[in-house]
Computed example of a mutant assay.
Amino acid sequence: MTTPPAHIEIDGAPAADPQLLAALMSGYGHYTAMQVRDGRVKGLDLHLDRLDRSTRELFGRDLEGGRVRELVAGALANAGRRDASVRVYVYPGVRTVVTVADPAPDGPGAPQRLTAVDYWRPAPHIKHLGGFGQRFHGDAARRAGYDEALLTSPHGEISEGAVTNIAFWDGTSVVWPSAPCLVGITMTLLEGPLESVRRPVTLADLPGYRAAFVANSRTIAPVTAIDGLAFAVDEELMGRVFAAYDGVTPEDIAAPAQPGSSSR
């Protein structure tokens, strides 16, 4: 790990904690993003497991779920919120930062138009920092009139959106691309109830699918186009998707982990 500089200034003023600031500036670390409603989170145990696994892989140390619960609960209390968008970041030295912001709108997201780009994230199984490529391609997509970038290999195999997972409907099954990607918490919560499958999906395969949707911690939304190929919004499919998500029981952040359950 790079030794932090002895002195750092921000807008001409010395930083209060140079070591923490150096960790934040390193761009190396990972995070999870969650929606909190009435102090509860869908898939909270999955978020805690993600944080612990990635901390072990990047920094060789545990990150106990109980500690994360305390930090999130404390940040929510200090912000005076029960509903919020919360992110938990982990940096070198296992410095943990919690941010609390306005909650994302509930309910279906606006239909999305995507454009394919030749880019796969490094270490895609980790929700890591330093996502310059994702931001670059996502911003370029929006400037071109699209809502999101769709990440593909040079051969057109689809992995994920820049900040979402994507699924396709062939009339029988919900299909998630099997290429390396971040398996999102929302994706994980939907896979079982929707009886979905994972298999390779390429741009050349897209005309064979009847519908598509994207999902992340902030939204679930139908896809209406990928470049020049239009998709109809399958209302029956989207109804099933939203019903599956609504059926997930949220977990109380402040509640202790049950004996025998994952605390990660």
Rank of each mutant, 00 (worst) to 15 (best):
L203V: 08
V117P: 14
P222K: 01
M187C: 07
G130C: 06
I185W: 06
L51C: 06
L63N: 01
A225C: 12
P105A: 13
P177G: 01
E251K: 09
E251A: 12
R143E: 05
R210T: 12
D52Q: 10
G12T: 02
T188Q: 10
S261F: 03
G260K: 06
N78D: 15
R37Q: 08
T99A: 07
E191Y: 12
P111L: 00
T2I: 15
A212N: 10
N78W: 13
A244T: 02
L237D: 08
G130W: 04
R121N: 06
L151I: 03
R218F: 00
G74V: 13
Q35Y: 00
Q258A: 10
L237Q: 08
P177V: 02
V241F: 08
G93R: 07
A101Y: 06
G60M: 07
L76E: 13
P193A: 04
T164E: 02
I220M: 09
A215C: 08
A77F: 01
A23Q: 03
V248Y: 07
V97H: 11
A77E: 10
G145S: 13
E195C: 12
T115E: 06
L182I: 08
I8S: 00
E160A: 12
L182G: 09
R198I: 04
H47K: 01
P92T: 02
H7G: 14
T202A: 14
D38V: 13
L48H: 05
A221T: 06
C181H: 14
D52L: 07
I253V: 08
K127L: 15
A77C: 03
G192V: 07
S263H: 00
A84W: 07
E9S: 09
E191M: 15
E70K: 07
G80W: 02
S159P: 05
V98T: 12
M25K: 04
R199V: 04
L206Q: 10
V36I: 04
F168V: 05
S173G: 11
G239M: 13
R198L: 07
G156A: 02
A232I: 14
R61N: 11
V100Y: 04
V163S: 04
S54R: 02
Q112N: 07
P103L: 02
